[in-house]
Every structure is written in structure tokens, then in C-alpha cells.
Design a protein around this nucleic acid. Structure first.
Length: 555
RNA sequence: AGUUCGAUGGUGUAACGGUAGCACCACAGACUCUGACUCUGUUAGUCUAGGUUCGAAUCCUAGUCGGACUACCA
């Protein structure tokens, strides 16, 4: 660690606080998901931030579920969130729920009523909206605003006891209906919802609003640095107002810009739509930007953490190139995965001068990046599968693969010289023919030849088969949310392609779900959880960089 | 319009009054039994206009552009 990494603005704030001895130099953060959806790459940034800061400054980080709205929240989400955080490599110091504080929050509300700072309002939602005013016009006071403390106390208790129907009454803070910040125009603190809560069951029929729950929860836990995204910046005065009026632990809120990424959407509402309307197979569809989707796609947690670290944090608008995430994934996978051979789009190659019925076993290096990676046996014979795209009858200048007269290396085996091909009536190539050079055997090459190209192959007689799912970006445009019309119009129709019968080298048949490999020259793949004992399924995690494809695109 | 946050190469992010740097992308080359990896090099940036200063991305003023806020969601 010779070079000093510059601090981001939150680290600066924290280091200043530590230097000033604020809270005795203690650092305590929290990650506060609402259990109403699955975690996505944006949450991963927040997780890395909150848990990372706590770790860096020897502090603590709580996991706190912000479960104040029983209508949308479910235990299924709680479990997936916990699972995702652990998978990302973090462990929380305390597992907490805003609903743990419902009793305390109720007492806080009573305290504010007693100070004359909160009142029960009989207005309907429409009336409240109508009297709210606008960004340029002040609001007007509710006719119920001047109720006595005693009456408010009684009505609030009746609200709690279930005397009123949903929406019939609310508890509001008495602040200022003309405040330039709309959130300070007598914000709602409690609403009536006769609904079952995933943790408190039927105990409550009134539930606190976000603004009356979040800051106090932070305070109760004595959170020192409450980090959230920029859209909550307008809430900060209210966050502070409640804490000050209540005279409780002064947690402080800090905001950073949420991360956006190209070729995807990030809002939970939109992701839920993709799931519910079956545009994807579920929250963990490998095309989803969810943590579970990326996990299934084969993205390593370490790569995601590294990505979050690389993009940093700031307060300005941004849209990160998904290519950077893919770079981080490749960077990690390059160092850690074994190389194997698989032929996705096969055509038969016949080595015409190789004895029929003969088989040789070659040792193939598992990972050139890892000196201790070892080798594995690969069978070679007269008839092989190769990629259809690796043969061209009429090859352009810089085509280093098979074409009549061309010489290439069959990876880990022999150098072969292409002699031609056979076609069916329709003109489709059915066989490619070549002769091999016995003295060019891999690892023991005395031919003196150097070849420009090396291609992968699988022996037909020994090949196993597997299903392969090729994934591409879910949307055809960089920022689907920013286009005209519905974002779903921009879904990429070719984002998923299934190859039902791909030939793989026999050793690979042993692979188990979750394991990752590099299909040489094709990309990184992982074994999908859909695999069964007699059918392997691979997901393409990410392609390899392909200079030849780029060359062709340029024409 | 009000409040509020922001503005540095194509993208993301540094520089805290003193040489505008890093990563991705792109481009050119070297290497290569993966057209991968790795290595080398190149292109390209301080929103505008004033001011303060020996010196401004940084401080001040005005403007421009962009985002957020007007849910009994969080």
C-alpha cells in the first residue's frame, strides 16, 4: 500500500468527525432496505459503502429493514436480501427492523402531541393534497389543526385501538403550511392501515410514515452516519426536526448520488414489472441487474465489490457504462477460471491422414494465469467438432483460421493444414477436411512451423453435450427510462438465446451448479441451477473481448 | 416559478489556491498454442462570462444547463 488513495467525500466527513472526537470517534452505519423487492447493483453500491465504511473505521454496520408499510412488504424479500448481502461478502452487526420500534415510535408521537407539535387530522387524502399548496404557492391550514392536546391524545389512541377505518384520520406534525420545503408542510406521521404486518401481525392498525420512522430508528440505534441517496436530501430538515423536537440521539444524514447503469433499468417498480409481466424469468433472471440475477449469471461477488469500489461515490448525476462492470467480471474470471473447450455452433472436421479408430490423450493446461492450475486429459481423434465460423471457403486477408490452404493449431493438439470441404445439395458445408503434421504435437513440436491461428475443438466420439444460454443486454438503448414511451418497448428481443445441444469436452461433464469456466475463445460461463444429473445447463456470464469481431464490424 | 443539489475527456472518478491525474472505452503497436490475457504508446476534459490573486477546476458574482421535490411509498 505505497500509494495513498484519495478519500471520497463521506470518508472526509467521517475522518473530520473522528478528528473532532464526535461521538467519541465512533462510526456506526446502517443499510436500510425496504423488504419489498430484490436487491440490485445500486443497492450493492450502498452495501459496499455502508459496510465498507464501518470496516475501514473499525465501526459497526446494522442491517435494518425499513418495514413500515405492510401493504408491499414480505418475508420472502427479507430472506433474499439477507442472502444477497452475505453472498456479497458482508456480515451485519445487528439485524433489526423498524417494526421493532413501533412501540417507541408511538411514544414519540404521543410526546410530540403533548408538546403541541402534532395533531390528528380528519381530512381525506384528496383534501390534504389540495391544501398542500405547490412549489410556488403556500398551503393552507387544516381545519383540524388547532385541536386541543387532550383531544389529539384521545383521538390518536382511538386510531391505535382501531376505532377508525383506513384513511379516516391521520396524525400530522404541526410545522408550517407555508414552508418552502413541501415536506415541512405538516407532514403525515401516521396513517391507518388495517393490515397484517409480516412481523407484528395484527398488533397494529396504524403505521408510521418513512419520515417519522427512519430518523428515529437511526437515533435509537445511535447511528452516527446515516447514508442515503440524493432524493432524500429534502427530507433532511424533517429528519433533523423530529430528532431535535424529541431530544434524542443526533444521528446525521448524508446523501450521495445513486448509481445508474447503461442498458438496464434500476427502479424497483420497473424491475417488478419485468418480473410480473414475464419479460424475464424472475428476479434472478441472469439478465436482471439484481444481485441474485448477477449471481446466477456467474458474476463473482469479488468482481461486483471491485466494481463498486472502482466507480466510487459522488453527488452528481451519473450513468456508469455496464462495460466497466463486465471488465471487472472478466478481470476476476481471467485469474480464477479453468479453460475448457466447447463448440457452440459445430461443423465436422475430418483429419484425413489420421488413422481411423485411433485416440490420443493430450494434457491441456487448465489456467495459464495460474501456475498451480494443473492439467486435464483431452481425447483427440480423427473426427472433431469445430466452430462453423472458424472455417471460410474464401477467406479474407487477415483471416487466421481454417480455409483451403491455411494452417492452424488445434489447441493442445496438432497443427493442421486445411484441404477443403464437402457441401450438401443446398450448399451448406457439412465437413471440413484437413491433414495433420505428426511432428507438431503440442508440447513436443519439432515442425519448426509457427501459425497465426489457434482454434478449439472437441472430439466427436468423446464429446458430451450441454445446453447453453447466451445472454446479452436486456435493453437495446443505453438509458431506456429516458426514452420516449414505455421503457419496455426498448427491451432487446435477442437478449437470450438458447443453444440446446452444445458439444463439450468430456471432463466438463462433471461440472456442478455455480462452477465457472472459460470456454476458450468464447467467453466465461457458469453452470446454471437448472442443471440436472442428465442435463447440464451453462449460462454465458460475459464474452471475451473479440478483436476479430470488431475488425469485421468495421468492414 | 419556489426550494434544493449538481456541472472535469465518450463514461466513471481524482486534484482541497501552485505541473489537470487514474480506470473503463476507443485507436495504434508488441507478445501470444485463446484474434483472450499481458505490455507499450496515442487521441480526448475543467459549462459560460466577469472578478479576487503572482497564480483559479478549486474562492466570489451573474448566467447557462441538468437532476430532485408538490404519494396516507420508501
Amino acid at each position: 500500500m505505497s500509494e495513498e488513495k484519495s478519500l471520497n467525500f463521506l470518508e472526509e466527513i467521517i475522518e473530520n468527525d473522528i478528528a473532532a472526537g464526535t461521538h467519541g470517534g465512533r462510526v456506526h452505519t446502517r443499510f436500510p432496505p425496504e423488504p419489498n423487492g430484490y436487491l440490485h447493483i445500486g443497492h450493492a453500491t450502498s452495501i459496499c459503502l455502508n459496510f465498507g465504511l464501518a470496516k475501514k473505521y473499525n465501526g459497526k454496520c446494522n442491517l435494518r429493514f425499513d418495514d413500515t408499510n405492510p401493504t408491499t412488504e414480505e418475508t420472502e424479500y427479507v430472506e433474499s436480501i439477507k442472502n444477497d448481502i452475505r453472498w456479497l461478502g458482508f456480515e451485519w452487526d445487528n439485524e433489526l427492523y423498524a417494526s421493532d420500534y413501533f412501540d417507541k415510535l408511538y411514544d414519540f408521537a404521543v410526546a410530540l402531541i403533548q408538546k403541541g407539535l402534532a395533531y390528528v387530522d380528519d381530512s381525506t387524502a384528496e383534501e390534504i393534497a389540495a391544501t398542500k399548496g405547490s412549489t410556488i404557492a403556500p398551503g393552507s391550514n387544516s381545519p383540524y389543526r388547532s385541536r386541543s392536546i387532550e383531544e389529539n391524545l384521545l383521538l390518536f389512541e382511538e386510531m391505535r385501538n382501531g376505532k377508525y377505518k383506513d384513511g379516516e384520520k391521520t396524525l400530522r406534525a404541526k410545522i408550517d403550511m407555508a414552508h418552502p420545503n413541501l415536506l415541512l408542510r405538516d407532514p403525515l406521521m401516521y396513517r391507518i392501515k388495517h393490515e397484517h404486518h409480516h412481523r407484528t401481525g395484527g398488533k397494529w392498525c396504524i403505521y408510521p410514515m418513512y419520515d417519522f420512522a427512519h430518523g428515529q430508528s437511526d437515533s435509537i440505534e445511535e447511528i452516527t452516519h446515516s447514508i442515503c441517496t440524493l432524493e432524500f436530501i429534502h427530507h433532511r430538515p424533517l429528519y433533523n426536526w423530529f430528532i431535535e423536537q424529541l431530544g434524542i440521539f443526533p444521528s446525521r444524514q448524508y446523501e450521495f448520488a445513486r448509481r445508474n447503469m447503461t442498458y438496464t433499468v434500476m427502479s424497483k417498480r420497473k424491475l417488478l414489472q419485468l418480473v410480473n409481466e414475464n419479460h424475464v424469468s424472475g428476479w434472478d433472471d441472469p439478465r436482471m441487474p439484481t444481485v441474485s440475477g448477477m449471481r446466477r449469471r456467474g458474476y463473482p461477488a469479488e468482481a461486483i465489490r471491485n466494481f463498486c469500489d472502482t466507480i466510487g461515490i459522488a453527488k452528481r448525476e451519473n450513468i456508469v457504462d455496464v462495460g466497466l462492470l463486465e471488465f471487472c467480471v472478466r478481470e476476476h474470471l481471467n485469474k480464477t477460471t479453468n479453460r475448457v473447450m466447447a463448440v457452440l455452433d459445430p461443423v465436422k472436421l475430418v483429419i484425413t491422414n489420421y488413422p481411423e479408430g485411433q485416440t490420443e490423450l493430450f494434457d491441456a493446461e487448465n489456467n495459464p494465469e495460474d501456475p498451480n492450475g494443473g492439467t486435464r486429459p483431452i481425447p483427440f481423434s480423427r473426427e472433431l467438432w469445430i466452430e462453423r465460423e472458424d472455417f471460410l471457403e474464401e477467406a479474407p486477408k487477415k483471416f487466421f483460421r481454417l480455409a483451403p490452404g491455411n494452417t492452424v493449431r488445434l489447441k493442445s493438439a496438432y497443427i493442421v493444414n486445411c484441404t477443403g470441404c464437402i457441401k450438401d445439395e443446398s450448399g451448406k458445408i457439412t465437413e471440413v477436411h484437413a491433414t495433420y503434421l505428426p511432428e507438431s504435437k503440442s508440447g513436443n513440436d519439432t515442425s519448426g512451423l509457427t501459425v497465426k491461428g489457434t482454434i478449439h475443438w472437441v472430439s466427436i466420439a468423446h464429446a458430451a453435450t450441454a445446453e447453453v444460454r447466451l445472454y446479452d443486454r436486456l435493453f437495446r438503448v443505453e438509458d431506456p427510462s429516458n426514452e420516449d414511451g414505455d421503457f419496455k418497448e426498448y427491451i432487446n428481443p435477442d437478449s437470450k438465446q438458447i443453444l440446446s445441444s452444445v458439444f463439450i469436452e468430456p471432463e466438463l461433464a462433471k461440472a456442478t451448479p455455480g462452477s465457472r469456466v472459460q470456454f476458450m475463445r468464447k467467453g466465461y460461463f457458469c453452470v446454471d441451477t437448472d442443471s440436472t444429473s442428465n442435463k447440464l445447463v451453462f449460462n454465458r456470464t460475459v464474452t471475451l473481448k473479440d478483436a476479430w469481431a470488431k475488425e469485421q464490424r468495421r468492414g
